[in-house]
Design a binder for these strands. Structure first.
Lengths: 151, 151
DNA sequence: TTAAGTGCAAACGCTTTGCAGTTCA
DNA sequence: TGAACTGCAAAGCGTTTGCACTTAA
């Protein structure tokens, strides 16, 4: 989570500690579930010279090192990034207001246990995305309305 | 599943029954988890004039009607399509051999029950993607190796 | 000192869209 | 007949890559 952690991870794997990498790291660690573009914007508040492609390269490297992960929920738009250790693999997206809630219940753990025991599958990552209507929207809407495929 | 079902769904919603739509439908209903490009290839075996954009438009329409859905697992590549009613929302992807297995256990149902009761969330779709090593690959590999971010 | 990292711009792959011609109802 | 649909080609978007310059170690 800290900058020191990043320094150790990079150095230990023979990678350099650079300005863009530190900046990207602090954004991802501070605010989960941002897109590469959003991360770049925040980074540029501090250092306007940082390029979007460097953000992508930093994120890719962090993912390779297992520090960060690209959330596998396909929103049709850009990918979202978060710390790898975050127990926030559980996403609930409301199709009405678009809000994404993060949850960390024991659901994911139970899934992992089931697969490990019954299927011989070594689980490394679980992405659970539930789409529907959140409690607020379900009060004001008919649940029978179909989602539109607008992007 | 049948062609008649599609005719009814389209007609009932004021949409036309056309050659490309029937062709796309039969491919999606026959083989789940294909990409738009793959669907187009199969469709062209029968009618080489069908355009890829028509495949996309047909799939979008079917999704709007709730007949078909775009699997939300982001592979970094193209989206995969399947029948909406299919109880195959449960995907296991091996990061070594790339194989995607479909499972329909009671796991998804339990997730739905939990969210409905405890969070007031009206669940419409559940996408569960588990990434790791399948039983075959885990025998021949060290599970500690990190996944690479190659696309 | 020098290999690793960066900015820039161009290319990439998947998907969407504008338009003119076609076709189902 | 006429609105819905299609093929085609071009544009759109997020992401990756080649290259020359810069920088951390």
């Amino acid at each position: 989570m800290t900058t020191e952690w990043l320094r150790d991870s990079l150095g230990g794997a023979g990678h350099r500690v650079t300005g863009p990498r530190l900046a990207v790291w602090s954004v991802v660690a501070g605010t989960p579930h941002l897109t590469a573009e959003e991360i770049a914007q925040v980074v540029r508040d501090t250092d306007p010279t940082v390029n979007l492609s460097s953000v992508y390269r930093s994120l890719s490297l962090f993912a390779e090192l297992g520090l960060v992960r690209e959330s596998s929920l396909d929103t049709g738009g850009p990918s979202h990034w978060e710390l790898a250790h975050a127990d926030e693999q559980f996403h609930m997206r409301c199709r009405s207001c678009g809000k994404v809630e993060h949850h960390h219940g024991d659901l994911v753990e139970r899934v992992v246990g089931h697969l490990t025991n019954d299927h011989g599958f070594i689980v490394e990552q679980v992405d659970l995305l539930v789409t529907g209507l959140c409690s607020e929207c379900s009060r004001s809407q008919s649940p029978s309305a179909r989602p539109s495929r607008s992007r």
